[in-house]
Design a protein around this nucleic acid. Structure first.
Length: 921
DNA sequence: TGAATCACG
DNA sequence: GACGTACGTGATTCAA
């Protein structure tokens, strides 16, 4: 007779987590619960062919924390703390483990694992099967039937049948629901009746049959607290009765036959165990290698078969609502869908939706046009579903918590869809996944990834819309061509996801993906959509002001030269200074042009005897003003979005190899601050009336992280005391603290982080290479952790080809093995810096991900995060909220590493506010 | 399109 | 012994 084992995976993993020590695997991922779960599954599967062993098995999990019970009672499970942070990344691994055993993994939105277990159990019993539920959950004990259904607690190795239930609760399993209802449950927040515990509940039920019987009998009971409580809380008792009732009629997506157990599969299980380095289990696997072998294909595992090539003619153009419903229905059923949007432009904050594509499986993809034709009055508008209908239908799918949306650079789509009222969740982003796996090895654009991973060359956008004057908007493309291009994008995205997702697990990328990067696309989409207000009048005033000064300087420079030339041309300027005016010491670069950068010009300006002193000073001033005008005051005005009156930058999540963000169009991460004249530009970044700008920045975060990572006690103590770190370094290195030694110490502190050479330091400090070497030696002597860190980091980077941050972010350095010594040396310096810069980036990203929820929880929904500048977050908020917001922001930033990483140095956060960004500093 | 320059952390 | 000299970015301008 078939014997079905239903494993309560969710219940198990929580118990395993708390019972087992916090193990980590070789990738630094927490795996304690996964290890416990794997051994448990194995033990069960091993019992196939034994007397009471399973013939069929499935694992049942909770899909989300919400179920139909929350609709009955909004307080249900309301006091449950979120799962521990180092347990969260283990949830996907539990699914990996289950797949490695080729077992079905069952979860359904809106239902708890208990309901699914009850429903499958009933279905199996109805066919005359034997059922064992692997769990120790008391709610599931309601299902026990003498001789046909029992519970199995693998942690104590105990089976639990009718007798055990009676012993534990004093009633038959069939009456257990009545008892549980009266008792209530503080963990799940089932109210029950106050003052009624297991003993009283059992007594009452034995006497009166069920909850209704007890409530009916209450008025006749002897006066006392119990009677009063039963009468007063009758409604809560009835509600509790419903809450503890298991749903036995959930639609069942998996046939019981699919759950047939084949034995221990070799290849996928071996790959899984090797990935985590579960050595004892690997040994065990080798011992059972001759056992019956199942041969399932693990989707996306390294040995997975290649997908068929993209078939552009297989893609469907969806132009009627019924077909759209059909696609949505399959996506719902499948639980994941790749998506992509086509729009009228590149700037997500302005672009309008033209169409959406979906992909469900390789070559199973469609394009839903909504904005084709229309703009051209001569062309006929091709048949399309009404835009509002598409938006409404897609909103339901894209917001469905049980359907994973997969996109490539989803941030873009989120901004476009966000303006249509659609909030995409949950999601995976393949550009982020690729970055977390392969930063430093190659780019992460879709076309490049398709070529690298799928040996596929995507249709070029330019080939669809043309270039130059003849370039068309995507809405002007005929539906056939549009479908071929757009659906391919979704198809390729899906294919990439199938490749990359398992690699995250197998290569240790899950930790940084889940703990740092995954939340970022949504967070940054919010920041970009919000934008920042700039004062165009102030910028215009600065522009004219600068223009006048530039014109005056230009005239003076030409007068000194005696003729006109283009000051902005380094080539002409070099010729004027070094050839025509005969200034000595000109250095030509490889392109044969004299160097005229600031260092060179300042050198000339410092030389009292140089004939070019006057001109050079004016050129330097001219350069500064030209830069400010062209790059900032002029450009920024042009970047104001007329619809919002604000500037919306675009952050790249994959721009910097170390994990930092980068900012473009415009770059808001290089707005001047170091000189007074440039700083004025920050005054143009302003708050709306009634609001203020708040800037919060980490103080010396990279040096603090260096102190922690390299384990330098002196630096750690200095930060713990709150000392000025550059003063302290000056004291250590030079024996006295003054402006000069502090400045030098500061230079050296940074230089060390960047892996500088003695010549580099010599150039910076204007001393000889020998003197510079002396300072470096002294530094290493005073802070002995530092050279050990540098040596260890390089050794490891060379052996593995990559470095890692405290959160497991990898940065690859293929050029560490370059035959070119310069390239090699450059990579070595970058590798020394990457763990520090990267960890800093990880920490502020975690702060950003937590900031929205933390502000909302504190009742500060109007505090908006607008910008990130590597170690600084900028907010706009109502004046009255400053005090409370400051507290929340400071706390979130200071604790952002925890609990995943415990730092041995505190993280300091400086906060300032004002009407403008300039005033907030 | 690449080099040079310079703005930021 | 020569090489070329700090990590990470993006925008603008010139010149080919």
């Amino acid at each position: 007779m078939p014997h079905l084992y239903l494993v309560d995976g969710s219940g198990y993993i929580f118990r395993a987590y708390h019972r087992l020590p916090p193990l980590t695997n070789k990738h630094g991922e927490p795996v304690g619960a996964v290890y416990g779960y794997t051994t448990m599954l194995w033990k069960l599967v091993d019992e196939l062919h034994t007397a009471d062993g399973p013939t069929h098995m499935a694992v049942v999990l909770d899909k989300s924390s919400k179920s139909f019970r929350n609709e009955m009672y909004d307080q249900y499970k309301a006091h449950r703390p979120p799962p521990p942070e180092d347990l969260v990344p283990q949830f996907p691994m539990i699914r990996d483990a289950t797949r490695a055993f080729s077992l079905p993994c069952i979860d359904e939105e809106g239902w708890e694992a208990d309901d699914l277990i009850a429903s499958y159990a009933k279905a199996a019993l109805a066919q005359g099967w034997q059922v064992t539920i692997v769990s120790s959950d008391k709610d599931l004990m309601q299902l026990v039937e003498d001789g046909s259904l029992d519970l199995y607690d693998t942690m104590n190795n105990r089976r639990l049948g009718r007798e055990a239930v009676i012993e534990k609760f004093g009633v038959e399993p069939a009456k257990l629901g009545e008892v549980l209802a009266l008792m209530g449950d503080s963990v799940d927040n089932v109210p029950g009746v106050p003052g009624v515990g297991p003993k009283t509940a059992a007594k009452l039920i034995l006497e009166h049959g069920d909850v209704e019987g007890v409530l009916a009998a209450a008025p006749d009971m002897k006066k006392g607290k119990l009677r009063d409580n039963l009468i007063e809380h009758a409604d809560m008792a009835r509600l509790s009765r419903k809450l503890v009732t298991l749903a036995c009629d959930v639609p069942l997506p998996h046939a019981l036959e699919e759950m047939e157990l084949q034995g221990i599969p070799d290849a996928p299980l071996r790959a899984f165990l090797e990935h985590h380095g579960f050595k004892s289990l690997l040994a065990k696997l080798s011992a059972v290698a001759d056992a019956p072998v199942a041969t399932p294909a693990v989707p996306g595992a390294p040995e997975a078969e290649a997908d068929p090539p993209c078939d552009h003619d297989a893609y469907e153009t969806v132009t009627d609502a019924a077909r759209l419903d059909h696609w949505i229905q399959i996506a719902r059923h499948q639980g994941f869908v790749a998506i992509d949007t086509e729009t009228t432009g590149l700037d997500a904050t302005r672009a309008d939706l033209v169409g959406v594509s979906l992909a469900l499986h390789p070559n199973l993809a469609c394009y839903i046009p909504v904005g084709h034709g229309g703009s051209d009055m001569f062309a006929e508008r091709p048949e399309q579903i009404d835009r509002a209908v598409v938006v409404a239908k897609l909103k339901e799918l894209f917001e469905d918590p049980s359907v994973l949306k997969i996109g490539h650079n989803l941030k873009y789509d989120m901004i476009v869809l966000g303006r249509l009222g659609i909030a995409v969740a949950p999601y995976d982003d393949t550009i982020v996944m690729s970055f977390d796996l392969d930063a430093g090895l190659h780019g992460h654009g879709m076309d490049e990834l398709a070529a690298t991973h799928l040996a596929h060359s995507c249709i070029a956008y330019k080939d669809v819309v043309g270039t130059g004057k003849k370039q068309l908007g995507f809405g002007e493309i005929d539906l056939k061509s549009a479908t071929r291009y757009a659906a391919e994008d979704a198809d390729v995205t899906l294919r990439l996801w199938r490749r990359l997702k398992p690699r995250l697990t197998f290569e240790g990328g899950t930790r940084v993906y889940e703990m740092v990067d995954r939340p970022l696309p949504a967070v940054i989409a919010g920041m970009e959509s919000a934008g920042v207000k700039v004062d165009p009048d102030l910028l215009a005033r600065l522009s004219t002001d600068f223009a006048h000064q530039i014109a005056a300087l230009e005239e003076q420079v030409h007068a000194i030269a005696g003729f006109k030339f283009t000051i902005g041309s380094p080539k002409q300027l070099g010729d004027v200074l070094f050839d025509k005016m005969g200034i000595k010491g000109g250095r030509k670069g490889k392109s044969g042009v004299y160097s005229t950068d600031v260092n060179e010009l300042e050198r000339i300006a410092a030389d009292k005897d140089s004939p070019g002193r006057e001109m050079v000073a004016k050129v330097l001033e001219w350069r500064q003003l030209s830069k400010l005008k062209s790059t900032y005051t002029d450009a920024l005005q042009a970047q104001i979005n007329p619809a919002t009156g604000r500037v919306h930058t675009s952050y790249s999540l994959t721009g910097a190899q170390t994990g930092r963000l980068s900012s473009t169009d415009p770059n808001l991460q290089n707005i001047p601050i170091r000189t007074e004249i440039g700083r004025q530009i920050r005054d143009a970044f302003v708050a709306e009336p009634g609001n203020v700008i708040l800037a919060a920045d980490y103080s010396q975060i990279e040096l603090r992280l260096a102190a922690h990572i390299a384990d330098v006690p002196q630096l750690r103590d200095a930060f713990a005391r709150g000392d000025d770190i550059h003063n302290m370094t000056a004291q250590e290195l030079f024996g006295e603290v003054n402006r000069d030694t502090r400045g030098r110490a500061k230079t050296i502190n940074f230089a060390i982080l960047y892996g500088i050479s003695r010549w580099g330091l010599a150039g910076r400090l204007d001393v000889s290479a020998d003197e510079a070497q002396g300072m470096i030696d002294r530094y290493f002597e005073r802070f002995p952790g530092i050279n050990r860190y540098i040596a260890d980091t390089l050794t490891e980077a060379k052996a593995r080809g990559y470095t890692e941050t405290l959160f497991g972010r990898k940065t690859h350095f293929p050029r560490l093995k370059s035959p070119n010594p310069n390239e090699r040396a450059g990579s070595e310096r970058a590798a020394i810096n990457a763990p520090i810069q990267g960890t800093s980036a990880d920490i502020i990203k975690r702060a950003m991900a937590r900031m929205g929820p933390a502000l909302a929880a504190a009742g500060l929904p109007d505090t908006r995060m607008l910008m990130q500048v590597h170690d600084e977050l900028v907010f706009e908020l109502p004046e009255g909220d400053v005090t409370r917001a400051t507290e929340v922001i400071r706390h979130v930033m200071a604790t952002a590493a925890e609990p995943a990483v415990t730092l041995s140095v505190p993280l300091g956060v400086d906060v300032g506010t004002g009407k403008s960004w300039g005033a907030a500093h």
